[in-house]
Design a protein around this nucleic acid. Structure first.
Lengths: 95, 95
DNA sequence: GCGATATTTAGAAATTTGTCTAAATATCTA
DNA sequence: TAGATATTTAGACAAATTTCTAAATATCGC
């Protein structure tokens, strides 16, 4: 689990918006892009960062590339957050 | 709650290390700095970012300034994470 | 009040990041 | 296979970030 990659990926508002958009279900790069006022090339760059953090998965479907949330990372994220603020998650335990 | 400030603050490894170090309890700026090979000025910059995100609290104690974790932000952080990956936290609910 | 210690502020340099345009790659349809 | 559509890659540039040194501010102990 690349902690640095995940936190870095979440640091950009456009990337968080992409993740939110993917909550509606898998979507092609083009569909995702409809919501943003940046070029496809810039979008693609953000996809690269998100993939690198393993926050999204891709699948080619014909001429489209479909992106989807990788929800399993949620667990890791929670762990990371708890790792930073242990007292908040354990009601006094040590962890 | 400044979501952007929090994510941005967590994106830097030194700042995450500062937070981890503060798990041992409140600590002066100088004590925190012992663990890092950067100047006090750079440290101070990181403190500013962490304060801006409300992740740490400060209290002057004589000539020292004591930093401590603001664990209440944990709840907000959890909310932010769940906001990004809702399905992972609800076992099928909508949230 | 003075000198010493702790921390922050100001300003500059180096690196990283986000964005763009142009070109490349991949797939579809006719 | 050729042309159209979807996406990525390459390279450049501006803005943001991290770090530094030097100077400023605050408090302590004498």
């Amino acid at each position: 689990m690349k902690q640095q990659a995940v936190f870095r990926a979440l640091a950009d508002p456009t990337r968080r918006a992409i993740l939110k958009r993917l909550q509606g279900g898998p979507m092609s790069a083009g569909e995702i892009g409809e919501a943003f006022d940046i070029t496809g090339a810039s979008l693609s760059h953000h996809f690269t960062v998100l993939k690198h953090a393993d926050l999204v998965r891709t699948e080619r479907r014909g001429q489209y590339i479909v992106y989807s949330l990788n929800s399993t990372v949620m667990e890791d994220l929670t762990r990371m957050v708890l790792d930073l603020f242990p007292s908040a998650g354990t009601r006094g335990g040590k962890r």
